[in-house]
Nucleic acid binder design. Sequence first.
DNA 1: CTGAAAGCGCTTACAG
DNA 2: CTGAAAGCGCTTACAG
Lengths: 327, 327
Amino acid sequence: MRVTIKDVAKLAGVAPSTVTRVIQNKSTISDETKKRVREAMVELDYHPNLNARSLVSQSSQVIALVLPIDSDVFYQNPFFPTVLRGITQIASDNDYAIQICTGQNEERRLDNLKQLIYGNRVDGLIFLYSNPNDPLVEFAIKDKFPFLILGKAASPFVSLVDNDNIKAAFDATDYFIQQNYRKIAFIGGNKELFVSQDRYEGYKEALQKAGIPLDEKLVHFSFGFMLEDNSYQMMESLPLAELDAIMTTDILVAEVVRQYLLEHQLTIPIISFDSIKPRLDIEAYIDINAVELGRESVRTILQIIKDHKEGKTVCYRQLIDHTITKL
Amino acid sequence: MRVTIKDVAKLAGVAPSTVTRVIQNKSTISDETKKRVREAMVELDYHPNLNARSLVSQSSQVIALVLPIDSDVFYQNPFFPTVLRGITQIASDNDYAIQICTGQNEERRLDNLKQLIYGNRVDGLIFLYSNPNDPLVEFAIKDKFPFLILGKAASPFVSLVDNDNIKAAFDATDYFIQQNYRKIAFIGGNKELFVSQDRYEGYKEALQKAGIPLDEKLVHFSFGFMLEDNSYQMMESLPLAELDAIMTTDILVAEVVRQYLLEHQLTIPIISFDSIKPRLDIEAYIDINAVELGRESVRTILQIIKDHKEGKTVCYRQLIDHTITKL
DNA sequence: CTGAAAGCGCTTACAG
DNA sequence: CTGAAAGCGCTTACAG
């Protein structure tokens, strides 16, 4: 058997409850006793049984990352692994563990989530996607369970951590405008996603501010994953010869655009969004700072969990700055 | 408070232990009682406290995915999200949850792992990388804790799930040889990785079988992440004009190669390995079937966990077939 | 076929 | 400053 708190107590000559207090570093315990107990813990290589601890403390020290259905485009994008790096950093700093929650369909995803929540296996949730009317988000709201959305939220009373995507797209478009480009195409990802909509909004605002009329023929959205058979067709519908620049909202989209241009020996500057330094040779990119998004979302969910224990309900809205980088 | 087993028992008019037996679907319970208890569970929307269950059953129903240090190239590759899809599928089918274990340095990673293992929070581990002399793997071996490696293992007594990388690279090279190509370059990823070494081995074997002498000038390995300043230099050191074809062991490498060729208006067919359909326009790719790798690794670790409970120690070596796809 | 009791390994009041 | 007792919500022998 593993070594238990009793073993430590016996070796240190104290009661188990005293060992607990030493672990919690309570100020009521004498330094001398603390020292003795800590030595015993090291000597026995003691690690508390987390299930026992969670059972009584009603807290699991686990955060669940809620992912979309496992067939989603989400998994193609470097966003997820990058944001995960930031998440694990801060989680580990705070002795929190990370659990994954997903499933093959909506029903399974909800089942899995319920099991985690009702089963007391997690203290809070981070949603790594945001769709309108997501049943899991709605469940968390109804259950008053601590959660936040990494991205935009449909409801205004939901905590979130996100970029200012309108501003970011404004900056991206403006970057080209400053170079006296006027014919700037916009090629977005899935139009259903908040993020595509916001970036389109920023594009329009930048044009408007510069007095450039919006030309619908320069605007395209792709549905789901970009490298479909029709993506080249879409490129051909653009007035490529007159184009000054192209803005894409997604690195997967940018890859296809870039490839098309190379194959047709066209040189049109591209700007895109990415969560890592793009591996393709484009003009510039908006770094959404995915690692920091991950970090901040853990800091925030930790705060929400704390608030929840104290009976408070605060709605947090944290914006992470983007940076524009010329390549 | 959440509804507990006592609430269910009371509503169904039975003892708590009977509720447990119904959940476990023991054959000793009468159908009539089962029915009553199940109705009560549904009515109360009962979900057992997993911490209490784990405490007594000594089993957490959680598998940890052990990841490399969070600065690793690993996170750039679509391998991880793809394999994760397979993992969550089978885990969810078997009522297992997935936890992430990583850290900013080796020490933290080992600490986190120990906490999970000694804390009874996980039943088994899947290592998503394989390096010689990894301290975490060595800890799992010493502790006799159930684990497997997704990839090649240094020790011959360690369970693993992997592709036959030698065979896969052989097939890739042979694909070109069958087209009467003879000058085939090999551009590998990090030479320290087993996977690069094995793929190089397969390349050599295919050449040898075809009677083509190995030309060292056609062979290159990159260190770490490919898109470094020296990657174009490396391309220029190749006798590009004479080359019939290029094989790369990694899609990140292939991207750079492809980009170089496009920019220099060279058309040399490329074959690469990938875990998803490549988003770039190359001749063919070896699909390593990452989703199936994920699925099989969960099936296998579940078996290892079961063996462990029964005191057995079996070493499993599961190979997942690759497929070659012309694009 | 089912119940009562004991116990998993912690932590949290309660005492002193 | 520290200990003894109770209890978190389950499951597992033990009885009958």
